[in-house]
Design a binder for these strands. Sequence first.
DNA 1: CGGCAATTTGAAGGCGCTCAAAAGTAGTGG
DNA 2: CCACTACTTTTGAGCGCCTTCAAATTGCCG
Lengths: 217, 217
Amino acid sequence: MAFLEEKRAPFVQHDAYCPELVHAPPGKSGPPATFFPAGAEIYAQGEAKGGLYQVEFGAVRIYRLLADGRRQISAFHLGGEIFGFQDGATHHFFAEAICATGIRMMRTTSFDGDLTGEVLPAALRCLLRAQEHLLVLGRQNAIERVAAFLIDICDRQGDLRQIELPMSRADIGDYLGLSIETVSRVFSRLRQKGVIRLPSLRSVEIVKPQALEDLVA
Amino acid sequence: MAFLEEKRAPFVQHDAYCPELVHAPPGKSGPPATFFPAGAEIYAQGEAKGGLYQVEFGAVRIYRLLADGRRQISAFHLGGEIFGFQDGATHHFFAEAICATGIRMMRTTSFDGDLTGEVLPAALRCLLRAQEHLLVLGRQNAIERVAAFLIDICDRQGDLRQIELPMSRADIGDYLGLSIETVSRVFSRLRQKGVIRLPSLRSVEIVKPQALEDLVA
DNA sequence: CGGCAATTTGAAGGCGCTCAAAAGTAGTGG
DNA sequence: CCACTACTTTTGAGCGCCTTCAAATTGCCG
């Protein structure tokens, strides 16, 4: 996959805008956590599947590639969220740290104990997210996609007016099925309409939440 | 939703091309099955969630609507397949019979017994399908989408050369995020290139499987 | 045969993509 | 502290794929 590395996601990235523990769970000592610098691979497609993963701080992108390098990010995972659900013995996607990220790895070799009672609901939430994203990718235009994305991130960051984006425009584009130029243009358009403000590159202030809500219809 | 009914999916449809029990499990007496005619609703968005469903024969579409009527079908379910996984107490999608369809309803009020051992893997397969479909909707063009669709249906119907489509072009379009005209044009293009033959409206013969595989890259 | 719906085909237009270049932002080292 | 570099983001211009609108054709069933 060397042909990709010069186009996107160089291993060393800026790790600003990655506030720690945005939504992290109460600090129980639990299993050990591992640190991943920005751009580091957490697991690869085809790799033997271990267990589940929980984001302690930072952010993760889950994606798949086409042979010619096109990339689709199927999900972002922020602090506190669980990921790594896979059918079968190997991973079907790549997982990378977007910024400096702490990951707690959980062994689930046998689905026993009350773990099952937690795994299934978490997997179903993941399924619901994926299915809802299908509607965005299949039937919404550029501005609707970006609005849906902003609302989603806002919800997951605690429903504040100000949201911090750990990911680049390229990541957002590959998540929304758009080019980075289109993502940028839509941000600009929303700013010109007074719907959002952009205090810095990676932070967004939602000025008119209702206008965003109206867009996703 | 009356405004939709004149545009698509009239309640009475042709129920040809719906071979029974394409992939149905061996006939154990089990729970009772219910019959749904073409177009009948199996459950609705917002409806209280019962349990899981298994297709005995026929086909089902799972979809969601936008306020203006745009529809995204997130999945088709053929004979033998299980569906109805939902997070929370109510359904988040609509489920309809595409053609004359038999559904076996399974109560799963408490996740007990060895049912849990079957539910999670089935849910994970459903998740994998949805995630793979995200790549199709987000990053593939019209001909690649149709090729991916044909390969998928072919696999699920037993990997024969000849496949029978229970769904209309409108359903295929709403599944692939394309207009019905584009779906039709792509079918024509594939036929002209000798990749497929169209013995009848709802059946497809795959003449050059490799050509289809090459398209999904 | 006649009527209705689904599908196909054609023509024109628009949204988002590609290509290209400018502007902005870090990070580095003098 | 500032110049220099590398990268990300923004903005512009032109184009292509897919959509929309429209009409012809096909298929199905009474």
